[in-house]
C-alpha cells in the first residue's frame, strides 16, 4: 500500500454550483505506481458526460475514487458538495462483472435495492417504493421481466435492470461504469436515449465511463479525455481532436514496469491493444498486481 493510498482527507468542499462532478489534483496509487496522477476536471451539471481514454487510463478508477470506492488524495465534489452530503442523490451502476453471478434474485428485487438507501436498513418498503420500482422497470423497457430471475436475462436485459435500479434511486447524478459493455446496439441506443432524456428533460446529470469515441462524439454533451491525467475536458468536439487522441492513445509513454528503466510507472497502457475492449482494461491493470476495483 503506497503512502498515497492512505487517504489524505478530503478538504473542505470548494463551493461549485452547477457542477455534476469536480476533481482537484486527485491521485490514486496502486502497488507503488500512480493510476491517476493529478487529475483535475469539472463536469457541469445537467449534461450527459463521458469519461474516455485508453485502457488503463484510470477511467474506472476515477469514478470509483469519486464515489469513495477507491482511496485517493485530492478533492472531489459531487453535485457541488462532498460525497457524504450528497450520497443519497447519487446513483451508481457498477461494471457488470462487479456483480455476483448466479445470485438467486429477480429483476424487480434488483431494482428494489435502489430504494434501500432511501428507506434505511429496517423500514419497510412502501407503496411509493413499489411504484418507483415499477416505473423504473417500465422506463428501461423490462417491466415484463420483473419476476424473471436475473440469470435468465440476456446481457442487454440485465443492463436495463441495473439502469432501472439507478432510476429507482431517483438520484440527481448517475455514475455509470462502462454501461454499454457487452450490450447489443439496439439496447445501447435505447439506453442512450433514456440517459439523454434524463439530462435534457429532468435536469439530471450523467457521468459514464465509455470507450466508444464515435457515440461520445454523436450523443454526449461533455467529454473528459483521461490518460492518467486529464488531457482535455469540455465539449466532445473540442476534446476528441485528433492530436489529443493521438497523444492519449498513440504515444503510450507509460508502457509498464518491465520496459521502464527508471521504474517510475503510473500506467500500463499498451499501444497494441485497441481501446474498444473494456475487459482488457481491467486485465491490464490487475496483471501486475493492482486490482482495478
Amino acid at each position: 500500500m503506497s503512502p498515497l493510498e492512505r487517504a489524505v482527507p478530503n478538504g473542505a468542499p470548494v463551493p461549485s454550483p452547477g457542477t455534476a462532478l469536480t476533481a482537484t489534483d486527485v491521485r490514486v496509487g496502486y502497488g507503488g505506481g500512480l493510476v491517476l496522477d493529478g487529475v483535475t476536471l469539472r463536469v457541469p451539471a445537467g449534461r450527459l458526460a463521458a469519461v474516455v481514454g485508453p485502457n488503463g487510463a484510470g477511467k474506472s478508477t476515477l469514478v470509483k475514487a469519486a464515489l469513495g470506492l477507491v482511496r485517493s488524495s485530492g478533492r472531489f465534489t459531487l453535485l457541488g458538495d462532498t460525497l457524504r452530503a450528497v450520497r443519497r442523490r447519487v446513483a451508481y451502476v457498477p461494471q457488470r462483472d462487479a456483480v455476483t453471478r448466479d445470485f438467486p434474485i429477480t429483476a424487480a428485487q434488483v431494482v428494489e435495492m435502489g430504494r434501500y438507501p432511501r428507506r434505511g436498513w429496517f423500514r419497510r418498503l412502501t407503496e411509493e417504493d413499489d411504484l418507483a420500482v415499477e416505473a423504473a422497470l417500465r422506463r428501461t423497457g423490462v417491466v415484463d421481466l420483473a419476476d424473471r430471475p436475473l440469470d435468465e436475462l440476456s446481457g442487454g436485459q440485465r443492463q436495463r435492470v441495473f439502469l432501472a435500479r439507478a432510476l429507482a434511486q431517483q438520484a440527481d447524478l448517475l455514475v455509470l461504469d462502462e454501461p454499454f459493455a457487452g450490450v447489443d446496439a439496439r439496447t445501447e441506443a435505447a439506453l442512450l436515449d433514456l440517459l439523454t432524456e434524463l439530462c435534457r428533460d429532468e435536469a439530471r446529470s450523467v457521468v459514464a465511463v465509455h470507450h466508444d469515441l464515435r457515440t461520445v462524439r454523436e450523443r454526449f454533451d461533455h467529454a473528459v479525455l483521461l490518460a492518467g491525467r486529464v488531457l482535455a475536458d469540455g465539449p466532445p468536439a473540442e476534446v476528441l481532436r485528433p492530436e489529443l487522441l493521438e497523444h492519449a492513445y498513440g504515444l503510450a509513454p507509460l508502457r509498464g514496469a518491465v520496459d521502464e528503466p527508471d521504474g517510475r510507472v503510473g500506467l500500463t497502457v499498451s499501444t497494441a491493444s485497441p481501446p474498444e475492449t473494456g475487459a482488457a482494461d481491467r486485465t491490464a491493470a490487475s496483471a501486475d498486481g493492482s486490482p482495478d476495483r
Binding site: S2, P3, G31, G32, G33, A257, V258, G263, R264, V265, D288, G289, S290
Partner: peptide
C-alpha cells in the same frame, strides 16, 4: 525500491 518499482511484487 519496492515502492518505486511495481515489478518487484509478483513477478
Amino acid at each position: 525500491a519496492a515502492a518505486e518499482s511495481r515489478s518487484s511484487a509478483p513477478g
